[in-house]
Design a protein around this nucleic acid. Structure first.
Lengths: 289, 289
DNA sequence: CTGCCGGATGAATCACAAC
DNA sequence: GGTTGTGATTCATCCGGCA
């Protein structure tokens, strides 16, 4: 069975391998054996601005002179930080000593996440920048078009050395010929995008298969175990399976889990990025004369 | 006089306009009038935490002149955070209500800086990614080649609305045709790179003129006042002057200040990026068929 | 003046084994 | 644990020397 709802106190690796565990990330993570996974990919919820009324004031406010009282968003920042910190701690426990962790987010939250990671002892190896060829057309002329998401790639500890890095793939994916930390690829759309029964997109931030293909190929070996504690519609496991890696996915929303189940009925056949798509990418990033 | 050593308790804007103030950033910032500058560009120490040993090129046996300057040394993350927080607070005081702030750093510290900015109430407008066409390669192939630096662009407060954003320039500089938050340009080298009397680079991390040109053209108007509290060899003011903006620069190191003085003897004549360079950039980011 | 070639170098958290 | 010596292996770009 692909789907499982963990009831026991703790699980062996074998019991949860290649399963989607229905439940809260933190609760389920704590049931997994320690030092058991080779790589973790996390796509945490984005930080959403709540209406000011629901927010508390930030206690550190008193540090600053001459500041008006509208610093209300910090109450929710604190809650967000707490959530991130706890899940990063729980992840750290299940990572093998030389496992690596990927986290993806936008500027709304990536800075908070990165600092928390460093404070917990994670050692950042790279930031990788996903440049979207077809970002949301949010051009109001008041900001730069936000065409990027940032991935942080890290090890548990500064001392971790023998992590997996397949540089041939890194060179293939990064722009230029030097394996740079910049990936240019389109967002998930078209047939790849999962739809609900209402015909609308099932998940608001479904990650493209190609993104996970790159993550997995550069940082794991065949047979490795990949964990995604906030699986959403399960792109991580879906691509992992196609690349002969094992996966453990955790997702709390039954709607998404149902989506994963349906998705897995038709296993992914991976093909390299089409030359047509490559051409599009090339056109996109080319600077005009 | 271009150079000035502030002795008084406080200064009017007129007294410090288009001057390099020799002194500690925090001390001098507190002497400036509040709400007096339109834009701030800050290039703080990145706290690279480079290993104490030297890195030697294998083929030519030469040593990489890393960033081992005293100004990049901090005892701990906490110490670094305190430094950043205090300077960000002092900057906030002198910013006009609709002024904007740019901060640049690499993955070593940009996440910490971004979180501290958010915690202090700064409202992030964008992250802008500088993709370097000619970075140091990662020789051992154990990571992605770190080819980027990240700029955070922010206003003092979420409520600030009427900040300057020249969208024509944003469209010109960003890759694609959408004004994306990605700038591709080479690092500062060759004749542009200031040399000391020993023939070696005067500053380990001099920023390219083209980077500042983009920052200034997108986020200020002619006649605006631009502050750089950690001026180094003064690229910010040098480009500001060429673009008919006013500047206030602060720098504590007399060696760098002397470098600025000499640099200003020959005012910058700005030329647009050449079509040859544009072509190179295009080649660099183009994806192969 | 131009073109070719060798040398130098860049914000780098870059390895590993032996003592 | 720290220190030191050996060795495996990157690329775009600029500059100066020389043909």
């Amino acid at each position: 069975m692909l789907i499982d709802r963990p009831e026991k106190e703790s699980y062996t690796c074998r019991e949860v391998l290649n399963k989607v565990l229905l439940g809260d990330a933190l609760t389920v993570l704590r049931k997994l054996p320690e030092e058991s996974v080779d790589m973790v990919f996390m796509d945490p919820p984005y930080f959403l601005q709540l209406p000011p009324k629901e927010l508390r004031r930030w206690t550190v406010r008193t540090v600053v002179e001459g500041v008006n009282d509208d610093w209300d968003q910090f109450g929710s920042f604190e809650e967000y930080d707490e959530f991130i910190k706890n899940i990063l701690l729980a992840i750290r426990r299940v990572m093998k000593p030389n496992a690596t962790l990927w986290v993806i987010a936008t500027y709304h939250s990536i800075f908070r996440i990165g600092k928390i990671m460093q404070d917990l002892g994670y050692w950042i190896l790279n930031d990788v920048h996903w440049v979207k060829t077809n970002p949301m057309p949010n051009w109001l002329g008041v900001r730069f078009t936000n065409a990027t998401e940032t991935l942080i790639w890290a090890v548990k500890d500064k001392k971790a050395k023998k992590y997996t890095f397949n540089k041939e793939f890194a060179k293939e994916f990064g722009i230029g010929k030097i394996g740079a930390n910049v990936w240019v690829l389109p967002i998930c759309s078209g047939r790849e995008r999962l739809k609900g029964e209402d015909g609308k997109k099932l998940h608001s931030t479904q990650k493209p298969v190609e993104l996970l293909r790159r993550v997995i190929l550069t940082s794991t070996q065949e047979g490795d175990t990949i964990l995604d504690p906030v699986a959403g519609v399960g792109t991580t496991g879906y691509v992992a399976q196609a690349l002969n890696r094992n996966f453990i996915m955790i997702e709390i929303n039954p709607k998404y889990v149902k989506g994963i189940e349906k998705r897995f009925e038709e296993p992914l056949k991976l093909k390299a990025i089409s030359s047509k798509d490559k051409k599009k990418v090339a056109e996109y990033v080319t600077v005009e004369e």
